Amino acid sequence: MADPARDTDTAPPRHGRIAFACAALVAGMVGASYAAVPLYDMFCRATGYGGTTQVATAAPEKALERTVTVRFDGNVAPGLKWTFGPEQNALTVKVGETRLAMFKAKNVSDKPLTGTASYNVTPEQTGAYFSKIQCFCFTEQTLQPGEEIDMPVAFFVDPSIAENRELDDLNELTLSYTFFPARQRSAAVAGERPKS
């Protein structure tokens, strides 16, 4: 007959394994939460999901006869004492043609302020076809008190849009920017509440 005391001495320490598994799970979840923002950003840029625009290094070789009107929108989030907006409300462009749009920003405060722009295109499914070659939104922008600057964006609508039959009737899209205080946007992206 087996000795119950001897069986408990040789039994593996289950509590230690469970604690280790729980700690590993928590560490994995923390790691996944830190990786979620850049992975989501990469996904949006690759697919145009949510109206995320593309970044291009060169313009297409050929433009199509099809035209699209690109409307422009500019906003400033609370906490950034800037004025910001497009210098023109819209441009009609040929698909595949590179165009330059200008925005103007001014720091209306009495101290230097750094802002960063978030952007999207609507309708959302056009994000995969809207490409920027140059944009003020690629980096943070610092304006001195009272400073006003022009901010260019060089863009094109990718000719591959003609292959998407669902967008055959598309003749207008909107490129929208919102400037945030640089620290506030970083905290918002990380899912934290901005500090005042």
Rank of each mutant, 00 (worst) to 15 (best):
V153D: 04
C135D: 05
E148W: 08
R17G: 14
E65A: 14
P159K: 01
G28Y: 07
G115V: 04
G48P: 04
S186P: 09
L173R: 00
A21Q: 13
Q144A: 12
V189H: 09
Y177I: 04
A24H: 02
A5V: 15
L175R: 01
L143H: 04
T122P: 04
K62F: 11
G127C: 06
L91E: 06
H15A: 14
P181H: 00
T67Q: 04
L91G: 02
F84I: 01
E166R: 07
D150P: 04
K62M: 13
T116A: 05
G127S: 05
S160T: 12
D73R: 13
N89Q: 14
D73A: 11
R66N: 11
S186W: 09
T174W: 03
Q88S: 15
F156T: 00
S109H: 05
G79N: 05
D41R: 14
G115S: 07
F155M: 02
T67G: 01
E166T: 12
C44M: 06
P78Y: 03
R185G: 01
G31Y: 01
A117T: 01
A101F: 06
S109D: 08
F138D: 07
N75A: 14
C137G: 02
L173F: 03
R71C: 06
V70R: 02
T52M: 15
F103K: 02
A182K: 06
D73F: 10
L175H: 04
Q88L: 12
A90Y: 02
R185V: 03
P112F: 09
A59H: 07
L113A: 05
A117E: 02
T52C: 13
S33P: 02
A63E: 10
E124D: 15
F43C: 11
G50F: 00
F155T: 00
I161W: 04
R165G: 06
M42K: 15
E87Y: 05
T178D: 01
P60Q: 08
S131F: 09
Y49S: 05
P145N: 09
V95E: 01
A56N: 05
R185L: 14
